[in-house]
């Protein structure tokens, strides 16, 4: 599932960007070191291949529904983790910029969930140990399966954590996880089936393409640890906040109230900085959606349920919208006349 800009807070989005960006740079350095310039055209073509493959739906056995492949584990097996991460990054970028799938802010998070987790976690920790060096058909399929399922589950967990940490959605971690994990179990199983079937086809037709599991690009510990470290920090940071509930909820609602009053006062720069600082400082507060919090928070957020304020807001909103559209139309007309 692609994470969207609309569900992310800037802090969370930028944090994920930092993590994925760092690992991406590490991956490019690894490739540079390997020095195989045959990889460059192959990566380009396989990126196009994965993009096209994702658009082909297949029937998931026993379910009566269809699914499609993401292809991350497949890429990791064919190209090795660093090259695979780069290819996935390019595919996600095209999807975000040209197909409105994901978004600019969410690109970092998506790269982490759909790229770092399969390539730097699931592949080295699940696939390689299970498959060994030159896996036969059965071993390879089992390893593929396991890697795809783990990848999907961890990805789902990451999405939940990122959404909850951002606080735009009201969902709390518990119910969200309860929803996402089973769905992604099914997704992971489907991906595993499809990937295993594809690899089986390759094994029968061009087995030499699968032969590069070799120490030629060994799984280096450092990028792996880096990825795990970030994942752990994110997880730990967010989860630890569940330990203490009320005080943070209170802080959050206080921050709400503070934002309300400050947003009317200029100067904009000071306000923005203050607001930003609050957001960053009190970000943990957003994650606490203990059931009691919404009411008290909402109550604190709007000093009084004031019909006048609400009406002014509504009228102002409509007027703003009208103005904006007028500007747009005006510009368009001027262009046509020019």
């Amino acid at each position: 599932m692609h994470m969207a800009d609309a569900l992310l807070s800037p802090a969370c989005g930028l944090l994920m960007w930092a993590a994925s960006g760092a690992l991406l740079v590490v991956a490019t350095r690894r490739l540079h070191g390997a020095g195989d310039e045959r990889l460059v055209p192959l990566m380009g073509l396989l990126g196009a291949f994965v993009f096209a493959l994702q658009m082909i739906n297949f029937a998931i056995p026993f379910t009566g529904s269809s699914g499609h492949m993401a292809g991350a584990i497949l890429l990791a097996i064919l190209l090795g983790p660093p090259a695979a991460l780069i290819v996935i990054a390019s595919v996600l970028t095209v999807q975000a910029l040209f197909f409105a799938d994901g978004g600019l802010l969410a690109l970092g998070a998506n790269l982490f969930n759909l790229g770092v987790i399969p390539c730097f976690v699931a592949y080295p920790l699940v696939y390689r140990p299970l498959a060994g060096d030159q896996p036969g058909a059965r071993r390879g399929s089992v390893a593929t399966f396991a890697a795809c399922v783990v990848s999907a589950q961890l990805g789902a967990l990451a999405v939940v954590l990122q959404t909850v940490a951002s606080g735009v959605s009201s969902l709390s971690a518990g119910p969200f996880l309860a929803l996402m994990l089973p769905i992604h179990l099914a997704i992971g199983l489907a991906e595993g089936l499809a990937t295993a079937a594809l690899l089986h086809f390759l094994r029968r037709t061009r087995p030499e393409l699968l032969a590069n599991q070799a120490p030629a690009s060994p799984v280096r510990l450092r990028p792996l640890l880096l990825g795990l470290g970030v994942a752990a920090a994110l997880t730990g940071g967010v989860l630890s906040l569940f330990a203490s509930s009320q005080p943070d909820g209170l802080q959050w609602s206080l921050a709400q109230a503070r934002t309300e009053t400050e947003s009317v006062a200029p100067p904009p720069l000071h306000t923005r900085l203050a607001a930003l600082q609050q957001r960053i400082a009190w970000l943990p507060g957003y994650t606490l959606r203990a059931p009691a919090a919404p009411q008290q928070a909402a109550a604190a957020a709007v000093p009084a349920l004031d019909a006048g304020t609400s009406l002014a807001g509504l009228v102002g909103g409509l007027l703003t919208l009208a103005l904006v559209l007028l500007v747009g139309l005006g510009l368009r007309r001027r262009r046509r006349r020019a």
């Binding site: 947003s263 009317v264 200029p266 100067p267 904009p268 720069l269 306000t271 923005r272 607001a275 006048g308 304020t309 009406l311 002014a312 807001g313 509504l314 009228v315 102002g316 909103g317 007027l319 703003t320």
Partner: peptide
């Protein structure tokens, strides 16, 4: 736009 709630201000003017 981030610093000042422009629609609110506009709305207050209008109403």
């Amino acid at each position: 736009a981030r610093g000042i709630d422009l629609p609110q201000a506009l709305g207050r003017l209008a109403t």
